[in-house]
Write a protein that binds this DNA or RNA. Structure first.
Length: 316
RNA sequence: GGAGGUGUGGCCGAGUGGACAAUGGCAGCAGACUGUAAAUCUGCCGGGCUUCGCCCUACGGAGGUUCGAAUCCUCCCGCCUCCA
């Protein structure tokens, strides 16, 4: 099933300039932005997530930003549902949806559909956590081999998170995760999108990351985190899994020096960017644009590319 | 000048006669990824090959002891600390 009206999607590693490009495209094409960034969805996490500024959000409507409290759980499926709604809504008003973000799985879930696997059950999850501590991971892997041999064979034995999730799905739904996936693999329900990616040579990317983190700290990142903690946001909350937030929490709690927290943050961000590149590398249908120069230098190329998809008629 | 210590692969840092091309970490590279994804996990990482193995060069330098040395001895060089 291909949707009639195209959607634009902008991806790429962190710090490549996706937001600025999206903003410019939106203003030029009468678009609205759908945030596909797992962490910008959280209220209160502004600086470290490079969330669009209030001014930018006034200029162009943003969806799926600030929709969750820091202690709430987000997920690819949840995102896909909400994003699909937002897209439909935007289209309904005759505007162009521009999906922007670097969360690869989220994007895939949105554009290719994701198996309707049960989202999980907190109690089961908690019970599995406890068993993990008492019995150890190998025992759980052994159990997974019984309940879902296919998934057990696919996963690395050390992949705690996925082993737990697979067990959870099997227990809660009575059906192995592998079966769910087989019944509806990626690509079953496609949403058409014109996909644009931004790339940067490694060295430049890394340099930008370091500068950006420094700028965030100067911009009050530490104060933001301290404020959240003071409001009673627990350090263990999902939102604080974000790169940088984790590190700065440790600094605010006196465990790490600022220098150490910043260093770790830069390092983790670089690794993250690398992972994003690996993911996007094999995503099909992304038109890549080098982004090392100013936006003005490549904007028209992107613009032309986006218009070619038939948007020219509808929006040009 | 005297005493003690130290020198390890790009960096940090273990190893103190064989199982060592040398634990671990960092940096680097590559990859996986179906509801925590900014998460979680895996592989490579002296050089060269016919890469589940083989060969070469390696633990500051040169000699030596030994069947065998990063590990012991001698001398030399560099660095550090203390005494003068």
């Amino acid at each position: 099933m291909t949707s009639p009206v195209p959607t634009v999607a902008i991806t790429g590693a962190t710090a490549t300039g996706k937001s600025a490009l999206a903003l410019a495209l939106a203003e030029r094409l009468g678009g609205e932005i759908v945030n596909a960034d797992a962490l910008q969805a959280y209220r209160g996490l502004d600086i470290g997530t490079a969330k669009p500024s209030p001014d930018e959000r006034r200029r162009v409507p943003h969806h799926l930003v600030d929709i969750l409290e820091p202690d709430e759980r987000y997920s690819a499926g949840e995102f896909a549902r909400r994003a699909a709604e937002a897209i439909a809504d935007i289209r309904g008003r005759g505007r162009l949806p521009i999906v922007v973000g670097g969360s690869g799985l989220y994007l895939r879930a949105l554009f290719e559909g994701i198996s309707p696997v049960p989202s999980g059950d907190p109690e089961t999850r908690e019970a599995l956590r406890r068993r993990l501590e008492e019995e150890g991971l190998p025992a759980l892997v052994a159990e997974l081999r019984r309940l879902d041999p296919a998934t057990a064979a696919r996963l690395a034995p050390g992949d705690t998170q996925r082993v737990l999730r697979a067990l959870e799905v099997a227990q809660v739904s009575g059906k192995p995760l592998s079966t769910w996936i087989t019944q509806q693999p990626f690509g079953t329900q496609r949403i058409a999108a014109r996909r644009v990616g931004l790339t940067l040579p490694r060295a430049i990317l890394y340099d930008r990351i370091a500068r950006r983190v420094a700028r965030m700290v100067q911009g009050g990142w530490v104060e933001e985190v301290a404020g959240l903690l003071a409001q009673g946001v627990s350090p263990g909350v999902p939102a604080f899994q974000a790169i940088g937030y984790r590190q700065i929490v440790r600094h605010v709690q006196g465990e790490w020096s600022l220098e150490q927290a910043v260093g770790e943050t830069v390092r983790e961000t670089r690794r993250f960017a690398k992972r994003q590149e690996t993911w996007f590398r094999k995503e099909p249908d992304i038109a890549w644009f080098p982004a090392q120069n100013d936006l003005e230098d490549y904007f028209s190329d992107v613009f032309e590319h986006v218009k070619q998809s038939g948007l020219g008629r509808a929006y040009g």
